[in-house]
């Protein structure tokens, strides 16, 4: 039966390929997974109430009681980072989700319909590109007030062109391939061609693009928080912690800004690495 097994292997090489996962994808994925878990489990794993001020414990260094030290009002930094993970990750997740959904629909519709619709979408996206996300977020905050909703909506719109542009060109490349023509001639409806053929074929690219956008959205949203336009205190977010911690840096207590800053950087790097590696695998799979 050795030949049958060999024939099967030849027909289904993917089964074997899936087994040797890229270690970078594994590491970055694991890190992100742990972050998400920590965010979800915050109430159970945070050692302290993140907003409980204890003036007596102000500006403490690393200790057995406070693993990452405390801030000027004596709040436990580890607990604040853990609770902060919730909104710091939820914000970018919402942004990427909305931008990806919008971008994918626009991209595939543009590629399929073409013509005037395609040109119109392209022009609108060019226009949006002209506004940096941060500026758009600031305008939204000025109009609708501080908090999570206005910056998230603004940044979702700001990130849509990034997704749309990349996916549109990929989708129109797919659309021009004979297999799409064959489906068309076979009588497959436009909606089925888009959802069952174009979408799955641009999906790997969609995944990379939204993963990389996640890192970028996290930084931009952190910047919004840093400027004091996002979630309002005392609720912790990493971006806002970088900002509040600044005042104590000069006093010789850099822990708050530093820890939050490092966490942001490492998270962004993890997302970018993941996106990058997924992109690499995508080009491999195309063979």
């Amino acid at each position: 039966m050795a030949t049958a097994a060999a024939a099967k292997e030849q027909l289904f090489p993917s089964a074997r390929r899936r087994r040797n996962l890229d270690p970078v994808i594994l590491a970055a994925g694991a890190f992100i997974g742990v972050l998400v878990l920590v965010a979800i489990l915050a109430p159970w794993i945070a050692p302290y109430n993140p907003n409980a001020a204890t003036i007596l414990a102000a500006n403490q260094g690393v200790s057995a009681a406070h693993w990452l030290g405390t801030d000027p009002t004596g709040r436990d930094l580890l607990s604040r980072l853990i609770w902060g993970a919730r909104l710091s990750l939820l914000g970018p997740a919402l942004i990427v989700l909305i931008a990806t959904a919008l971008g994918t629909v626009l991209a595939i519709a543009s590629a399929w319909i073409g013509g005037l619709f395609d040109q119109l979408v392209s022009r609108v996206m060019d226009l949006l590109f002209a506004f940096p996300g941060l500026v758009l977020a600031m305008i939204a905050v000025a109009m609708f007030g501080k908090g999570l909703v206005a910056p998230v909506v603004a940044l979702s719109i700001a990130y849509t062109p990034y997704i749309t542009r990349v996916l549109r060109s990929a989708a129109s490349r797919e659309r021009s391939l004979p297999y799409v023509a064959a489906c068309y001639v076979g009588g497959v409806s436009a909606r089925s061609i888009c959802s069952r053929h174009l979408l799955p074929n641009v999906f790997p690219l969609l995944l990379t693009q939204s993963t990389i956008s996640f890192g970028s959205a996290l930084v931009t949203l952190a910047a919004v928080s840093y400027l004091g336009l996002g979630i309002q205190p005392p609720t912790a977010t990493w971006g806002f912690m970088v900002s509040t911690g600044q005042s104590s840096i000069l006093a010789g207590h850099p822990a708050e800004s530093l820890e939050a800053g490092i966490l942001i950087v490492v998270t962004v790097v993890a997302f970018n690495l993941l996106g990058d590696r997924l992109a690499g695998r995508r080009s491999l799979q195309a063979l």
């Binding site: 004979p178 297999y179 023509a181 076979g186 074929n201």
Partner: peptide
Amino acid sequence: RRHRAREVQIVFQDPYSSLDPRQ
């Protein structure tokens, strides 16, 4: 289009791009 599909079908030149790679 479904009706026409029963009338005429086409096979293209390039066998590498005439099948959906994910199907």
